[in-house]
Design a protein around this nucleic acid. Structure first.
Lengths: 342, 342
DNA sequence: CTGAAAGCGCTAACAA
DNA sequence: TTGTTAGCGCTTTCAG
């Protein structure tokens, strides 16, 4: 156990009461200038640090925020968490991270855990399996601060930070079309997720703009978002063994993108010669891939920061918050060779 | 603010005293069976959760552990953190992560922050810039629980969890030698780090075994561990523009490995035709690189778990711990094409 | 077997 | 301007 000084130690050493010390430390004005100086100097000298736990107990605030994501070892989320930490740290909050591994049951358990930890607010990106958001609705109705980011709940009116999924998707598919592809498949995450539906809409809209008929059999959902390799393998293999095989695949999720490349590699198909590729991913090494991967990138770090800003503002708001913002940030498309038409 | 039930609510509702309720909840035996049952049932019904903050204040324990790493967005560390979280979570601890970005000043500030947060112990992987470990020595001497992992302090006798860096390195270099290379350069992290020195020793030992003379000019240190791209660029360019250019590079750090490939790609040299490569990295996508990368992989997740186990054991030990363990785990070498002799 | 009361570190209302 | 005191939620002596 590591001892540290308390306000009481200071009071005793200086022959003051604890409240006087407290006031001096907190810069209250109803205090003698020299008393204050004396206290501050002494506190400085012994390197006094207030006990955040005592403060929390007093204020009924834990100064911690809970983060719920599917997986930390995911380019997008690790970057988002970086953004979250950067803001939280500066504002005196610490973050407790929990992972759902795309399971609604774990999601619920994690929320319970975080609440039992008395977090002051929640930063949530839904699991791919979540269909029932009543848990969040309940909390939100009770006035508990929640900000959704990336994978938001469609049916709850609260703060949301998302990327412009429709446009990101539209741009990606349009790029493939402009390269000369018309047989474009779409590999995506669970339809439970709003982002999947938005990206599917973007895909359809781009096809539509160029009068390319939409083929439902070209769309494959992986309900576990690339976590289960077999699922991806099945989906991709269905795609590449079709009689009318697609010439390009547009992939709508970070994890799926790398998983898909693994499957293609295993199948022996060459990218982009046999099949072209473009995918959502925040990988920093997509350029080093064989071939370098054309990607749609989300501003993960900034999204994390933004969501955290909004959450802390909500937590610290004096009056109950009734106006909810939705921030939409732009994606970026990085052209490399995987999307080339040979 | 999100209200939740307290022991007082239960006491009032049941017409008991708070101490009785407390005893019932904690399974104390000096309590009436039916009183106990009544309390437990009621607590269950209202979904009572003890307030961890109050507990912390009482026990003088925060139930949190501080983690100090250079960077979260690093394959090795993100996996290690995963391991850390997995254990901590189950044992009722939460983790506060802080990043040094390889700067000793930030490292010191982070430690101060974590201490002010009253963490119960520290999991530390030193920054590349750290030369002065007196801060840790001081804490350790005071009996504060610290476990170093991966980048350990050579001069402090405390718990340590490392990979077998010497052997990992030796095996990697030996592999290159067996492929037929003799002109093998070594790109590595700051010499401040014990892991760098151990890996350098492994490199030398392998050369020595095959009677290949050691050339100091073949060893390049990047003191910021690949964080500063220019530094890596400089080092790699020096290597590839030497009169007697090396035919292979052995890279001793995760971040440096990818950075180095970026530089080589930019330079136009082909791997492995012009220069072969083998590197320490925990990337999950090294197989997708062009060419697929031969890697030395550390058991990051397990190292994180192990370090956390040891730390929590130390924290919860009744008597002061005076025996310190050093756990050494084995690396794994994964052979792919980047190390081929053409 | 149960209750009253003190105390963990801190702040703030109230007194002086 | 400073001190006294109560209280945040909980555990734990000490009495009863």
């Amino acid at each position: 156990m590591f001892e540290s000084y308390t306000i009481k130690d200071i009071a005793k050493a200086l022959g003051l009461s604890t409240s006087t010390v407290s006031r001096a430390l907190n810069g209250s004005y109803e205090i003698g200038a020299e008393t204050k100086k004396m206290v501050l100097e002494y506190a400085e000298r012994i390197n006094y640090r207030p006990n955040p736990i005592a403060l929390s107990l007093k204020e009924q605030k834990s100064h911690s925020i809970g983060v719920v994501v599917c997986e930390v070892a995911n380019n997008y989320f690790s970057q988002a968490i970086n953004g979250i930490e950067s803001i939280a740290y500066n504002r005196g909050y610490h973050v407790i991270i929990s992972q759902t591994h795309e399971s609604p049951a774990r999601e619920e358990a994690n929320i319970q855990y975080l609440l039992s930890r008395h977090v002051d607010g929640l930063l949530v990106s839904l699991s791919a399996g979540t269909t029932d958001t009543s848990q969040f609705k309940y909390l939100h109705d009770k006035g508990f601060p929640i900000v959704f980011f990336d994978r938001v709940a469609a049916d709850i009116e609260t703060h949301k930070v998302t990327a412009n999924n429709f446009k990101g998707s539209f741009d990606g598919v349009e790029l493939l079309i402009n390269k000369g592809f018309t047989k474009i498949a779409h590999l995506t995450n669970s339809n439970n997720l709003l982002i999947s539906r938005e990206r599917l809409d973007g895909y359809k809209a781009a096809l539509d703009k160029y009068s390319i008929p939409f083929k439902p059999e070209y769309v494959k959902h992986c309900d576990h978002g690339g976590m289960i390799q077999e699922e991806v393998e099945l989906a991709v293999n269905e795609l590449i063994t079709m009689p009318n095989r697609p010439e390009a695949i547009f992939i709508a999720s970070d994890r799926l993108t790398t998983s898909c490349i693994f499957v293609l590699k295993k199948s022996g198909l060459k990218v982009p010669n046999d099949i072209a590729l473009i995918g959502f991913t925040n990988s920093d090494v997509a350029e080093l891939f064989d071939p370098p991967l054309t990607v749609i990138r989300q501003p993960a770090f900034q999204m994390g920061q933004m969501a955290t800003e909004i959450l802390i503002q909500t937590i610290e708001s004096k009056r109950p918050v009734t106006e909810f913002v939705t921030e939409q940030m732009q994606t970026e498309i990085i052209l490399r060779t995987s999307s080339n038409k040979i």
